[in-house]
């Protein structure tokens, strides 16, 4: 063997490489799992692009705690107490703050101070996902929802700086401690200290065929549907009503449409 020439050496190497590759691929566990597949849950709610129509004439200030409560209970959103540490998935904002570019010198005070229900806009071009260094936040390809994988979040808060709607909150302290033990929803996880959290458009409920929790609690004040489907109930409403979106001039193409005022003539 000591005097093999270059040609023989290359032949031996080639044959043993092929043999080695064959050995490497015989992983018994992987073979076993080839029969396993992932699938969509039957009966789930699907869309090309989820959006929402929020009729602020039907949602009074008294309705807001009920809707916010339904969401925050379903998702174990902590109430830290300290307003600087507030965690919010869906919350109320005064009109002049929700739509700062719509401010008017003589705007009716009724509208200027009206509480508007705001949540993540699930933008078509979300700024938050572009700045995330770990891809912890991402836009789901199948339906355009802007979601988070809390396992990957390192708490850098770039997304909070990038989001023009303030739809992201940071857990400065342990969120478990800020939850009422008797009210924790055992079906949904909590978050941990040092991660950012946000509205998920109830992707976990949609995947099981349920409406988003806020829509369910709104008694018809909020309508969700497929923005890409011209025959959806949502698109029908958008055709009939004048609606506005929050800060569309920023180019994020938000997916939430608001109807505000103009109900006086109805009926």
């Amino acid at each position: 063997m000591s005097n093999i020439d270059r040609r023989q050496f290359l032949k031996i190497m080639g044959v043993s490489t092929i043999f080695g590759m064959g050995m490497a691929s015989t992983n018994t566990f992987l073979e076993k799992l080839e029969a396993s597949t992932f699938d969509k849950t039957p009966g789930r709610l699907a869309a090309k692009r989820w959006g929402m129509y929020i009729d602020m004439d039907k949602i009074s200030e008294a309705d807001i705690p009920r809707i916010v409560g339904a969401c925050h209970r379903a998702h174990n959103v902590p109430a830290h107490g300290n307003p600087k540490h507030e965690v919010k998935w869906i919350w109320a904002e005064e009109f002049k703050h929700a739509f700062p570019e719509q401010e008017g010198e003589f705007l009716s005070e009724k509208y200027e101070h009206q509480k508007i229900l705001v949540l993540c806009n699930h933008c078509e071009k979300p700024a938050c996902t572009r700045v995330c260094p770990t891809k912890a936040t991402y836009k789901r390809k199948e339906d355009g929802l802007v979601l988070m994988d809390y396992h990957r979040c390192i708490g850098c808060r770039f997304c909070m700086a990038a989001c023009p709607y303030g739809a992201r909150s940071f857990n400065y302290t342990n969120p478990r401690a800020a939850l009422n033990k008797n009210e924790i929803n055992p079906k949904f996880p909590t978050r941990m200290i040092g991660v950012v959290e946000k509205c998920t458009f109830c992707s976990e409920r949609l995947d099981k065929g349920l409406k988003p929790a806020c829509v369910e609690a709104s008694n018809g004040g909020m309508v969700f549907g497929d923005l890409n489907d011209p025959h959806s109930e949502l698109r029908k409403l958008l055709r009939e009503q004048f609606t506005m979106r929050r800060k569309p001039e920023l180019g994020t193409n938000p997916g939430l449409y608001y109807k505000i005022g103009g109900a006086q003539h109805a009926g």
């Binding site: 799992l33 396993s36 699938d39 969509k40 789901r140």
Partner: peptide, 10 residues
């Protein structure tokens, strides 16, 4: 990430 919440085992 994929919205696949059903696992069909081997």
């Amino acid at each position: 990430r994929e919205g696949n919440r059903l696992y069909r085992a081997s």
